[in-house]
């Protein structure tokens, strides 16, 4: 399998990359790690005439806490999340997800920016970002703008990103004491896109009462799905088994799965329910909640 011909450009800066995108309207695609784009091109399902490689741009690869945010550069490799002590110790939701994106080799090329802005409902990081309340810094010909993750995803492969824009940074609210998250993913086999996956991020007070909740779902709809009712149902509670079950049911209701090779829709709803219960349980205990 061989990609069709294209012209490759290694951009030296974000502005140069934006210039290339603007100069080749409708024909240019950003190449970061290439782990989604190159397979599509080999299958000849995508045939951009111009590829703009942003992986050589200095300072697009970092994971650090800055002010109120954990900021992650768009070209950061997914495996850098796995290797990051900061992520491992303070952002368990991200750590869970990063360990289950594709396979370890793909994670060495695939980037955080690519995963969050590709727009495939099977990508794992978007649900994490929605649950975490993250926002994306996007730069285009007119400069920077910030888009909340929950507003970013519009349809399958359709995002708030304009073709002339580049996502440069992911900003996640800085972990505070009493926060915790979990990402549970059910796959047909390791390395697969999810049958369904659930991201849960909770904040609890000293008594273990939930003060903030985010729940989002992977691969059970045209895009990542926010499940605000499920999240809201946990607020002001030290969630009991019945509360967790209720949250699971609300998440299942929020899912919009279709029947496919991964299973029928009602099964996927059932999986969402189960994974939500379990992820919420884990997130609550990671946040410091105790029975």
């Amino acid at each position: 399998m061989i990609p069709p011909e294209f012209d490759y450009h290694a951009a030296g800066s974000v502005d140069e990359a934006i210039g290339l995108l603007t100069g080749n309207p409708g024909e240019a695609k950003v190449l970061a790690g290439g782990q989604s784009l190159i397979p599509l091109m080999k299958l000849r399902l995508a045939s951009p005439k111009v590829l703009v490689d942003i992986s050589r741009i200095a300072d697009l690869s970092y994971i650090q806490e800055k002010g109120d945010w954990l900021v992650i550069g768009a070209a950061t490799k997914v495996n850098d999340l796995n290797d990051s002590k900061l992520v491992g110790s303070s952002y368990p939701l991200l750590a869970d997800a990063a360990a289950h994106i594709a396979d370890p080799l793909v994670r060495n090329m695939g980037t955080v920016g690519g995963n969050v802005c590709h727009g495939d409902p099977g990508n794992d990081l978007p649900a994490c970002m929605v649950a975490l309340g993250a926002q994306y810094v996007v730069r285009g010909p007119k400069g920077n703008r910030t888009v909340p993750a929950s507003d970013f995803y519009q349809d399958t492969f359709v995002t708030a990103l304009d073709p002339s824009e580049i996502l440069t940074e992911v900003q996640i609210p800085k972990a505070q004491p009493g926060t915790g998250g979990a990402y549970l993913k059910m796959e047909r086999k390791v390395g697969d896109f999810a049958i369904a996956a659930v991201a849960v991020q909770l904040s609890v007070d000293a008594k273990g009462t939930v003060t903030r909740a985010g729940i989002a779902l992977t691969n059970v709809g045209p895009t990542v799905l926010n499940a605000p009712k499920a999240a809201a149902s946990l607020l002001k509670k030290k969630p009991s088994d019945a509360d967790l079950l209720a949250a699971g049911k609300l998440a299942a209701e929020a899912a919009q799965p279709t029947s496919d090779l991964r299973g029928p829709a009602d099964f996927k709803r059932g999986v969402v329910q189960t994974l939500t219960q379990r992820a919420a349980t884990l997130a609550w205990s990671r946040a410091g909640g105790q029975r």
Binding site: R188, G263, D266, F267, G270, V271, T274
Partner: peptide, 16 residues
Amino acid sequence: IYPWKVWQVLHDKGVT
């Protein structure tokens, strides 16, 4: 035996 087949049985029998 995919998970959905087992789940469907468990669901039909009122287990899940």
